[in-house]
Write a protein that binds this DNA or RNA. Sequence first.
DNA 1: CTTTTTCTGTTGCAAAAGCAACAAATTATT
DNA 2: AATAATTTGTTGCTTTTGCAACAGAAAAAG
Lengths: 210, 210
Amino acid sequence: MAINFDVAEFASSFEHSCKKVQKKVFSKNEIITTYIEKRNQFCILLSGNADLVRYDLNGNRTIVEHFSKYDVFGEVFYNITTNNELLVEARKKSEVLFYSYDDIRQKCRSNCKFHQILSENLPELILGKVMDLNMRIELLTKRSIRDKLLGFFNLISTRNLSKSFTLPFSLTDLADYLSIDRSAMMRELKLLKEDGFVEKVGNRIILLYK
Amino acid sequence: MAINFDVAEFASSFEHSCKKVQKKVFSKNEIITTYIEKRNQFCILLSGNADLVRYDLNGNRTIVEHFSKYDVFGEVFYNITTNNELLVEARKKSEVLFYSYDDIRQKCRSNCKFHQILSENLPELILGKVMDLNMRIELLTKRSIRDKLLGFFNLISTRNLSKSFTLPFSLTDLADYLSIDRSAMMRELKLLKEDGFVEKVGNRIILLYK
DNA sequence: CTTTTTCTGTTGCAAAAGCAACAAATTATT
DNA sequence: AATAATTTGTTGCTTTTGCAACAGAAAAAG
């Protein structure tokens, strides 16, 4: 998302370069990885979509992060502390690159182009993630369901450069992403429509303000 | 917080090395910096405490992040989008190093030890921030005030390796940090005491469970 | 193409959280 | 040491959110 260097080219460079990297393909709903032990896994999503999901003791499901093309994720980013189950689940067919973060840092002995490019661009890659997480925090700190919804819609709208867009996930998932009750969210969405803030056609949203 | 290399030594190495870095001292309540334009500022807090604070249109104040010794912050980490005022405020007398991120990346021409060390350790530095933000998100996605409070207490408790600790900020600020109403938080804190989960002596908390 | 599963939309009721306001306590300022 | 400012603790009332439950629509599976 916030990547400056050409990840696409870079990712394809992988094919014929390094044995230390694994590429795997997952089908919908498969578990890509779990955050349990500190294996220092570092992953790049090459295609598809995936969610980092947490299930808490009260049975609540939270979508902690939503990943799309070229987003990075993995244990390296997480301080595994609590009694939470953290899973990365494929939302559709997805291709993922698996590294060990240690290999990235202490440059691959074979000195392959692949690890070199990644290593050089690592700060920007992680910085992109920091920005994503800050956006996420901005959403979560909104005080009402209405503000969370509008904040989310604004985000997508800005990203797509359009007042009309398709939701990146189902309404059920959106509630879990905003950390709110689904039925309460549906009610608020209805009110937003009634108050003329948004229009909704299928899973397409049209912003009607400013 | 999550820094592996010796920042202390590194920071002191600055004194006699590079002109491109500025060190400033702030007194309590002074504004250290604002996130408005993309100057790509990158700051390190050498001593004291500071908060990244957001004031929204409804007059709510949110403490987005709380910084202590050797935490990093600045515009580089933020995708400045909305109509939010983002300020970093000193909570007590604080020393701060100011860089331009660009200088860190395209290595300082003078090739000083200072920029070199920072540059090498940049990924870990930023990675530490990612972990902090993930913790923050975990807190914010808790569904009730009770869970947010307990989550926060656990965090501090784990960090201090003790069931008894002093709160790092006032209760008023804690509410703004957890993004909840102060009086509702006070009520819940009272219930937590009544239910025997915690004890509170002044601004010292003692956890009574597990 | 039919069946099963998941998702959407809705509602009444209960519980939790927010708001406003104030006094007492604590901390800063002069 | 006296005064001002901020923080804590509390409460009654209102609003928002969560919970449970269900029917219809849509999507996935066989």
